[in-house]
């Protein structure tokens, strides 16, 4: 199951040139571009690992693409996303975030139904991948 999270997630995978164009747009808007990766694709997982520091003072997307290439070399088997942080007063939050790398094989999410009192049902989603320990979830290693 293809995980859809963030902007552009219903589009086909962005090519590197398309990613570069998006990143340049963010830089031109004055956002700090940041790379994050994770192997826990749960939609409520907000704790993705950071790949280095957010790039506050880059002028060109080439810098981000270099970092992305390096991140893919190390964590090519995980999800990698690019996020753009707007520090202007009043915003101070992410303006854009999209996935730029995903594992070759995505087992998807399991839906768990918990039957509770009064015929109520609680729903929980669990990524199949997280049943394995961190770092061993997507085949490699």
């Amino acid at each position: 199951m293809r995980v859809t999270q963030g902007t552009f997630s219903y589009l086909p995978e962005l090519t590197d040139d398309q990613i570069r164009a998006q990143v340049q747009y963010c830089i031109d808007k004055g956002y700090a571009v940041n790379l994050e990766f994770t192997d826990d694709p749960h939609p409520r997982n907000t704790y993705w690992e950071m790949w280095g520091l957010p790039m506050f003072d880059t002028r060109d997307a080439a810098a981000v693409m270099t970092e992305l290439a390096e991140c893919r070399r190390t964590y090519g088997d995980r999800y990698i996303r690019i996020s753009a942080f707007d520090s202007t007063h009043g915003w101070e939050s992410l303006r854009l975030s999209f996935i730029v790398n995903r594992p070759a094989d995505e087992p998807g999410l399991k839906l768990v139904r918990q039957e509770t009192g009064g015929r109520n049902i609680r729903y929980t989603t669990v990524p199949y991948a997280t049943e394995k320990p961190e770092g061993q979830r997507y085949g490699v290693v």
């Binding site: 880059t58 002028r59 060109d60 997307a61 810098a63 270099t66």
Partner: peptide, 8 residues
């Protein structure tokens, strides 16, 4: 520094 200088 290299990242900052990229594109320039």
């Amino acid at each position: 520094i290299l990242k900052r200088a990229m594109g320039g």
